[in-house]
Simulated assay, not measured.
Amino acid sequence: MCYQTKITKQKEEIAERFNVEITALNDYNSMEFCSAFEYPKTPIITNEMPSKVQLFNSGLIPSWSNDNSIRNYTLNARIETLAEKKSFKDVIQNRCLIIADGFYEWQWRTKNGSKKEKYLITLPNQELFAFAGIYTQWADLNNEIYNSYSIITTQANELMSEIHNTKQRMPVILKNQDEQNWLQGKNYKDFAFPYSCNLVATSLENENLGQLGLF
């Protein structure tokens, strides 16, 4: 799963990397540790406005929802069941790029999880990248519009299977050349396992361990 991320680059770096306008990023704040359970606003690019970066909240709230409590369960969306889940099946084509430069995962060192080791997962050189995502708009009882997204997850690759050794899941991190394919509606099944990109895992618990690997 993917619940803790980081986005530490400046908005100008984001604009240059994704070749987009940054007019909507006045309220953008870089974050070394971003917990999805706090439903933060983070930078994304939607297929509806592909030339701009916008700030949406984590935790997709379907348009039919009576309140926002459902977002506790929609932070991630499994790619294998997108077409089956009520929260996601109607917005599969609402594609977005969720911008980050890293995410965190905990490796269970004991069977019961009493001892865990924290890893930071990045691209080489901690470059900016995009998670595959879906998004929607929801109006509350006061007709205030709330924009939100879910990160798409898939089966873990070799590296992430070693780290996320309980559920063995990972977010879909798009290769640069596939970012537009995702936005433009290419079949989502093409991004399921074994789709993956090169990742580096760095232990944050024991500096002597250094980088676990590159796959």
Rank of each mutant, 00 (worst) to 15 (best):
M1R: 03
C2P: 07
C2M: 02
T5Q: 06
T5D: 03
T5G: 04
T5V: 11
Q10P: 00
I14S: 00
E16D: 12
E16W: 00
R17S: 09
N19T: 14
E21I: 07
I22E: 11
T23E: 12
T23G: 15
A24S: 13
L25Q: 09
L25H: 11
N26R: 14
D27G: 05
D27P: 08
S30R: 14
M31N: 14
F33M: 11
P43Y: 00
P43W: 00
I44T: 02
T46D: 01
T46H: 08
P50Y: 06
K52T: 10
V53F: 07
V53K: 04
L55R: 07
F56D: 00
F56S: 01
N57M: 14
S58R: 06
L60I: 05
S63P: 00
N66K: 15
D67C: 01
N68H: 10
N68I: 04
N68G: 12
S69G: 06
I70S: 10
Y73P: 06
R78D: 09
E80A: 06
E80D: 14
T81D: 14
L82F: 07
L82N: 03
L82C: 05
E84P: 15
K86L: 09
S87N: 12
K89D: 04
D90A: 11
V91K: 13
Q93A: 08
R95L: 02
R95Q: 04
I98K: 01
D101M: 10
G102W: 07
G102T: 09
F103I: 06
E105A: 00
W108Q: 07
R109Y: 04
T110H: 09
K111L: 10
K111M: 10
G113A: 10
G113C: 08
S114L: 11
K115D: 11
E117L: 06
L120I: 12
L120V: 09
L123C: 08
P124S: 10
N125Y: 08
L128Q: 01
L128F: 02
A132N: 05
I134P: 01
Y135W: 15
Y135G: 00
T136Q: 06
N142E: 15
Y146R: 11
N147E: 13
I151S: 03
I152T: 08
T154N: 02
T154L: 01
N157C: 11
E158T: 13
M160Y: 01
M160W: 01
S161E: 06
S161R: 11
T166V: 11
Q168Y: 08
M170V: 02
M170F: 06
I173E: 13
N176K: 12
N176I: 10
Q177V: 10
Q177E: 15
E179N: 08
N181C: 03
W182F: 06
G185V: 09
N187V: 03
D190A: 02
F191K: 03
F191D: 02
P194M: 07
C197I: 15
N198K: 15
N198Y: 03
A201G: 10
T202K: 14
T202A: 02
L204A: 07
N206C: 09
N208D: 14
L209M: 11
Q211A: 12
G213D: 13
G213T: 11
L214C: 13
